[in-house]
Structure formats: structure tokens, C-alpha cells
């Protein structure tokens, strides 16, 4: 039993490697930025280890630099990271029943990237060992990258940094495309979300000024509500 669990964990870690590679250079950048803005190495590494949420950490350092107080930063962090609520709620029913301890541990590792990967692995995501493995790989990439950034004097070479900037997006594409094949409903959701995202980015200013965390939540809720209304029945699975 124990070896079965351990195997699932390592399979998860292997699947999570692209996330770790995507996180690492971003975490290096975070460590450098935090240092440049007067955070000690201990503080920035602790932040990555305990908060483990990229966008909000960059925002926090940014706000600190402009002299905004800790209370406001914590509220902003909450608003930015509230989107994980929806992701946790999506993963929860798919997971086999687990003790609270295991669920608490798995919940800590939910990020945009780990969620996307785990949600797209229907044959694995019932298994807590697998999910924990994915989360651990991502976590190590993020924390070790922060350590490297906090210690490093210079950043990565510019062209490498630029190329690595695409890593997480390439991974998102790799996760998304297979799920769109042979599913009309998923394709419609994709098109709908594309339009909504474009409007939220280039549309009227009252829309574009909404924070990214809120945009993800609002767009997801609108698109998925429409999807559930338009396609209430589960599609027949095609042979894949």
C-alpha cells in the first residue's frame, strides 16, 4: 500500500516538472526584486515558502516599495488569491475521500498551474499522492528559485529570461489543446472565454482596471455558467 502511494507521488512529481521549470526563473526574479526593494533574504524566502502564490508576492513587494502598509497588502493578497476558491471547489469533488490532514496538505499547493495540470489528469486526480507530487515539484521550483534569486548578484541572461517567460504559457497550451479536441462544449467555452478575456483587457476602462485575480474569477464564473446552461448534459466520450 505504502509503495503504491509513493509511486503515485513520484509520478506526480514527474508530471509537475514542467511547472517547476516554469516557476524557477520567475522565483529567481522575485528573489532579486524583493532584495532590490529592501526585503531581507529570510523574509522573501519565507514568503515563498508560506504564501506560495506568485502574482500576489510580486504585488506585495511592489506595494511595499510604494510605502503602502501591511494591512492593505494583506487585503490585496486576499483579493488576488480568492480565485483559488473556485479551483479548490473544482478539485474537491474529484478527489477520493480523504482525511482532513491530507486534504489540508493538498489544498496548500493549489496554484493556477498545479490546478490546471491536476484538473486535466482525470485518470490521476482522484489520487492524493499524485496531486501531492505535482504540488511538491512546483513548490520546490518556487522556493529554490527564490533562494537562488535572494542569493544571486545578477539575474539570468536576458535572452534566456525572455525565452523562459513563455514556459508556463506553453504548458497551459499543452494542457488545454488536447481537451478541446472532440468536445464541442469545451470549444465553445474556449471561444467564449477568449472573447471575454479580450474585452476585459482591451475593452472599456471600467473593465480593464479590474485586478487580474478578479478578472479570472468573473470570466470563469460567467463562461462556466453559460456553459452549464448551454450544455447541461455530459457529452459522450469519444475514443481518444
Amino acid at each position: 500500500m505504502r509503495t503504491v502511494k509513493r509511486r503515485a507521488f513520484f509520478v506526480g512529481m514527474k508530471h509537475g516538472l514542467p511547472i517547476a521549470f516554469g516557476y524557477f526563473p520567475i522565483a529567481v526574479a522575485f528573489g532579486l526584486l524583493a532584495k532590490a526593494n529592501g526585503l531581507t533574504a529570510v523574509t522573501s524566502i519565507l514568503m515563498s515558502a508560506l504564501v506560495f502564490a506568485g502574482a500576489s508576492q510580486f504585488i506585495a513587494v511592489n506595494l511595499l516599495a510604494t510605502g503602502i502598509g501591511c494591512g492593505e497588502i494583506i487585503i490585496t493578497t486576499f483579493l488576488v488569491n480568492m480565485r483559488h476558491f473556485l479551483m479548490s471547489a473544482t478539485l474537491a469533488p474529484r478527489l477520493d475521500p480523504q482525511p482532513v490532514k491530507v486534504k489540508s496538505l493538498i489544498a496548500f499547493g493549489i496554484t493556477d498551474e498545479t490546478f490546471s495540470l491536476v484538473a486535466m489528469e482525470p485518470e490521476h486526480n482522484r489520487n492524493p499522492g499524485f496531486v501531492a507530487g505535482v504540488n511538491t515539484a512546483a513548490y520546490l521550483g518556487w522556493v529554490l528559485g527564490t533562494v537562488a534569486g535572494a542569493m544571486l548578484v545578477n539575474g539570468l541572461p536576458a535572452i534566456l529570461q525572455s525565452s523562459m517567460g513563455l514556459a508556463l504559457y506553453a504548458m497551459f497550451i499543452g494542457l488545454l489543446i488536447p481537451g478541446l479536441k472532440g468536445s464541442k462544449a469545451n470549444l465553445v467555452i474556449f471561444g467564449l472565454t477568449l472573447v471575454l478575456s479580450a474585452v476585459a483587457y482591451w475593452g472599456p476602462s471600467w473593465l480593464t482596471t479590474i485586478g487580474k485575480g478578479w478578472k479570472i474569477m468573473i470570466i470563469t464564473v460567467v463562461a462556466c455558467t453559460l456553459g452549464a446552461l448551454l450544455f447541461p448534459e455530459e457529452e459522450k466520450k469519444d475514443a481518444r
Partner: peptide, 20 residues
């Protein structure tokens, strides 16, 4: 209804994370 809603969440989240 909620089950279908959550079925679609990964696709919507991924798309809005990618674009633009």
C-alpha cells in the same frame, strides 16, 4: 448544474490565463 459548471472551470481558467 454545479457539476457541469465545475467541469468547465479548468478550460475557462486556462484560456483566460493564456490570453492575452
Amino acid at each position: 448544474f454545479l457539476k457541469r459548471f465545475f467541469d468547465f472551470v479548468p478550460y475557462a481558467v486556462l484560456t483566460t490565463l493564456i490570453f492575452p
